[in-house]
């Protein structure tokens, strides 16, 4: 049976979700997405530059048949602004799935949890499929799944920090109690970080900077695809327990006397 990520009733083959920020141009963005194999890609909502409106548009480089566009609420510091951004995004006609992030502080970019909960309640009521970015906090994760979010997205480490999963024990608790997919969002630095998240049993990984700001973003996109895939397979295969002492791999019988 094919191993699929089910998000709010839609199946995805790829468990890697990628952002579209920080690339040198749209060509590179497109190529990195292609190589990553990601089917869901995040975008931000911003004002059009009205003095130079004829610039190329990101959507000219993303095929809506191949990719699900996931608008984010990056840059929003209040529930009100996040909800407003989601309503604008929905009118763009890319569906009703949104990545909710309400930022609490511009130095850490950690989420403002009370505001995230407020926004999630409103958005779920309005029919959005809400994927919230949160701390690695099991209580918050539980509250958001109870509100009706389609997934929970705990950070591995601060956005863009590349530190990898800093609190695997909290992620484990989140996984244990989750009734919705758990997607590690933010803080991944390299392929092994993504693999570790997947080996733990996370349902997916969302990243932007780790690919876009790598020396070779296209090669890193491939590395991340493989990291997520191998981590997932290792999780499904079931790793051996860790032991302190050796266990011989070769038979002990028939050794020359």
């Amino acid at each position: 049976m094919e191993d699929l990520l089910n998000l709010a009733g839609t199946n995805y083959r790829s468990r890697l979700i990628v952002g579209t920020g920080k690339y040198k141009d749209f060509q590179e963005t497109k190529k990195a997405i292609e190589v990553s194999g990601a089917e869901i890609v995040t975008v931000a909502v911003r004002r059009v530059n009205i003095t130079d409106p004829n610039k190329e548009n990101l959507l000219d480089y993303l095929d809506p048949k191949k990719h699900t566009i996931l608008p984010n609420t990056a840059g929003c510091y209040t529930a009100e602004d996040a909800v407003r951004t989601c309503r604008l995004a929905r009118e763009a006609g890319v569906g009703k799935m949104i990545k909710l992030e309400v930022i609490g502080d511009d130095k850490t970019l950690f989420p403002d949890i009370p505001a995230t909960l407020d926004a999630a309640r409103i958005l779920v009521k309005e029919g959005f499929v809400v994927l919230p970015y949160i701390n690695d906090d099991p209580i918050t994760a539980k509250k958001l799944q109870d509100i009706g979010c389609a997934a929970v997205m705990p950070l591995a480490a601060p956005i863009g920090s590349g530190l990898g999963i800093r609190n695997p024990y909290n992620i484990r608790i989140i996984l244990e109690q989750a009734t919705v997919p758990v997607i590690v969002d933010a803080g991944v630095g390299t392929a092994s970080d993504a693999a570790i998240a997947m080996e733990m049993g996370c349902d997916g990984v969302l990243m932007n900077t780790a690919i876009a700001s790598a020396r070779d973003p296209i090669l890193m996109a491939e590395a991340m695809r493989l990291g997520v895939e191998s981590g997932r397979k290792a999780f499904l295969a079931g790793r051996i327990p860790k032991k302190l002492y050796a266990t011989a791999s070769s038979p002990l019988e028939g050794i020359l006397g």
Partner: peptide
């Protein structure tokens, strides 16, 4: 009025 569109983001 606000006129917005999608840009690259994570």
């Amino acid at each position: 009025l606000e006129i917005v569109h999608f840009v690259g983001g994570g």
